[in-house]
Design a protein around this nucleic acid. Structure first.
Length: 762
DNA sequence: AAAAAAT
């Protein structure tokens, strides 16, 4: 029996709502739709065990039927709480748990002790603001602390990055090298780097090649020289444990042919050509080694274009969604450039700020060479984690600062060296005002998810950081902006921050992707919970399910409900403490809590691999938000399913949703089509009532230059209200052919009638 | 009437 969510192919609009829901539910039982079977099979939706769905035409909510004992067995109990409906196989979940609990894994996980603040949060000061029962869920298993100051040689994770001066007191080179080296030979579980030439067993060969790693057998003279030269382009010694920690996670490499279909267009004067492989541009030994370790086989479209642009030292404005590989698209070339150029003045400045303390020099103020700004804490962490991978075996030490975590710990981490800083704007301003960070020598500035940062009101902080402090002016630094959309505010920011930039338009990943099966089902508010349980029961046990709701309160309520129903779930939203948020993410990622209830905080940017099902328990009012949400599944070429609960409250998204479904070649429920049609005729503004009234399609590049024709023709157009002298065409020599004509026309439309409507119709 | 973010 196939499990299908396809509603009956009749218009439901005329039916009483309760009947509508009932009708759909009965279809859940009887309908076997072939086109979807394959995908659903992949998603394990067939494995409902007769439990998830009703047995007759009459719908019985799952929590009212067949309650068995195991379900009620103390779900609050940590590790046993993973079982759900009594027929779940806990073994697989526990094996995850076991893995996560093993010391040296979770123990050094992510920023466990690099930044220290995880530990700090656990030092009895953790703020369990949320009370029971949530805080005791999904046992922590002693996670984060394993190896802090773990004795002997074990260097803190970043040692490799700042050996430049720590070497001098500790001389860890020889020790680390020996240990790490020993571990290298027999590694068979991952592709070897052809670039880190010191791998293998022949140390002499490595030495002769002038490569790195001569310390194994005590050729200290070579090491000495290397250290003194401080050649940043040469790899530091390997460190097996760090390497394992950084690279043994799930394969984040994006190497699916699907991505080749994504259209990309670069515009601007003298735009360098794109690359086809990572070898087409020289990024140096360290980067190439880390690319291999990361198992990145070929660049994604945004990487193919952005890497050569950034390598050729051009400013960049890229419109690209998260999930397109854009983090690596800027980290790889920026880091590569830093390795090539070395620290330069930044190092002198940092040294000059050193003070002696307990016989050790502490660098009071750090002058990062590169700054990455991101809108949310989680995204900042994620970028930081990527940066650590690509900084492996380099002298670059990445740091991350963001709010909600102990600033003292972050300061201490900074003081250990910071060459690449990832930050949320508020906390960075704080750090600058405390004199902990100087941007005087910041040569690379990245604004990630710029549109989101503006949405969140960060513009004053961003301008404070970029324009009103010691950051080199545009032209004196290299600036890269990434944004999913390109509304007027972002254009202005681009004009102010970028010099002669190249504009990169990258097609949407995810939403258009046929990797994601999008379902829309009519579910009344009162039926949502029951319906959700059905979906959860029908979902495979090791699939991750992300459930979006519209409010923080709603998130709490739903999580509590699921929890009482015996599901291993967690939640994330802005009122939870930072510690809880990170913990929730971890529980979810690791599979220990395979269900996560989330608000918009998790919609964008988070790269959680293996999310099989995204459920819009509440649909957002904004189609962009919808796109971001469903983009949490179907990532990196995997198949995904997105199910949205629709009812009368969601009429504001009807038309845009329909457009999306059509464009992504999804089945469109006929009732939705009818509703959209009705809506269109009711509305004075042709189906897009109070939101954007720009001239292009809903799901497109309506906020990009060139509009929906971004990849097509872009004829000369009027410059509209935005063009001409004020716009981009006339700015600093302009853009040649790219300037006014493409910015103008479409944006002219936006002039006065850009209005936002929220969930409540404001 | 939401969410996010520096405290």
């Amino acid at each position: 029996m196939a499990f299908s969510l396809k509603p009956k192919a009749t218009a439901h609009t005329g039916l009483p709502s309760a009947q509508r829901a009932g009708d759909i539910m009965s279809h859940v039982v009887v309908d076997g739709s072939h086109g979807l079977e394959q995908q659903l099979a992949v998603l394990d939706l067939n494995s409902a065990d007769g439990q998830g769905v009703g047995t007759g035409r009459r719908y019985i909510p799952p929590h009212l039927r067949n309650k068995d004992a195991s379900k009620n067995a103390s779900p609050a109990h940590t590790d046993s709480s993973v079982a759900t409906d009594g027929n779940e196989d806990t073994a697989s979940v526990n094996s995850w748990a076991d893995r996560c609990d093993s010391p040296g894994w979770d123990g050094t996980r992510t920023n466990g002790f690099v930044n220290g603040y995880h530990d700090a949060r656990l030092n009895g000061t953790a703020n369990f603001a949320r009370g029971s029962p949530r805080t005791d869920r999904g046992g922590r298993g002693g996670g984060f602390r394993g190896n802090r100051n773990g004795g002997t040689f074990t260097p803190p994770m970043h040692n490799a990055a700042f050996g430049t001066y720590e070497n001098k007191d500790g001389g860890w080179n020889s020790v680390v090298n020996r240990d790490a080296y020993a571990s290298f030979g027999g590694r068979s579980d991952r592709g070897r780097s052809a670039f880190f030439n010191d791998r293998g067993t022949n140390s002499r060969g490595r030495y002769e090649r002038g490569g790195f790693g001569g310390a194994t057998g005590g050729n200290s003279r070579w090491v000495e020289e290397s250290r003194d030269e401080e050649d940043w382009s040469k790899p530091m010694p390997p460190n097996e444990r760090l390497e394992h920690e950084l690279f043994s996670g799930s394969n984040t490499g994006i190497n699916f042919e699907k991505y080749d279909d994504i259209p990309v267009e670069a515009t601007g004067t003298n735009s360098p050509g794109h690359i086809e492989t990572f070898h087409d541009v020289d990024m140096g030994e360290i980067i190439m080694g880390n690319i291999t370790l990361s198992r990145y086989t070929r660049p994604t479209p945004v990487q193919k274009y952005a890497i050569p642009i950034i390598k050729s030292k051009r400013d960049l404005m890229a419109c690209a969604q998260t999930g397109s590989g854009k983090t690596a698209a800027f980290l790889l070339p920026v880091l590569s450039q830093i390795y090539t150029d070395g620290p330069g003045e930044a190092l002198q400045a940092t040294k000059a700020s050193a003070q002696q303390e307990n016989g050790k020099y502490v660098r009071r103020k750090q002058y990062p060479i590169s700054l990455v700004l991101a809108p949310t804490r989680e995204l900042a962490l994620q970028i930081y984690d990527e940066a650590r991978k690509f900084a492996y075996r380099s002298r670059v030490r990445p740091c991350v600062v963001y709010g909600g975590a102990d600033i003292g710990q972050q300061i201490r981490d900074l003081e250990r060296g910071c060459h690449l800083l990832v930050a949320t704007p508020g906390r960075l301003v704080d750090m600058m005002e405390r004199g902990k960070i100087g941007l005087d020598y910041c040569k690379y500035l990245v604004l990630d998810e710029a549109d989101r940062m503006l949405d969140m009101g960060f513009e004053p902080q961003i301008r404070r950081i970029v324009e009103q402090d010691t950051m080199p002016p545009k032209g004196g630094r290299q600036t890269m902006m990434f944004s999913a959309t390109f509304p007027k505010e972002i254009q202005i920011l681009a004009r102010d921050f970028l010099e002669e930039y190249i504009f990169l338009a990258v097609g949407r990943v995810g939403s258009t992707s046929e990797n994601i099966t999008q379902k829309v089902v009519w579910v009344e508010e009162n039926d949502k919970r029951s319906f959700l349980l059905d979906l959860l029961n029908a979902t495979g046990k090791d699939s991750l399910t992300l459930v979006f709701v519209e409010t923080k309160k709603g998130a709490d309520a739903l999580e509590d409900f699921l929890y009482r129903e015996g599901y291993a779930c967690t939640s994330i939203h802005g009122d939870r403490s930072q510690r809880d948020r990170e913990e929730a993410l971890h529980q979810f990622r690791s599979g220990r809590c395979p269900i996560m209830v989330a608000t918009a905080v998790a919609a964008r940017g988070l790269d959680i691999s293996n999310v099989k099902h995204v459920i819009n328990f509440d649909l957002p009012s904004d189609i962009e938000e919808y796109v971001h949400r469903i983009g949490r599944t179907g990532r990196v070429g995997n198949l995904g399913l997105a199910t949205s609960f629709y009812n009368d409250k969601n009429s504001n998204i009807t038309k845009d949703l329909l457009d999306i479904l059509v464009e992504a070649k999804q089945e469109v429920p006929s009732w939705l089509e009818n509703l959209a049609y009705e809506h269109q005729h009711k509305s004075t503004n042709r189906g897009r009532p109070k939101r954007f009234s720009g001239g292009f399609g809903a799901r497109d590049y309506r906020q990009m230059p060139g509009g929906s024709n971004t990849f097509g023709s872009r004829g000369a157009r009027s410059t509209g209200t935005h063009g001409g002298n004020r716009g981009f065409g006339g700015n600093k020599g302009g853009f040649g052919s790219f300037g006014a004509e493409s910015y103008g026309g479409n944006y002219g439309n936006y002039g006065g009638n850009y209005t936002q409507v929220d969930w409540w119709g404001n």
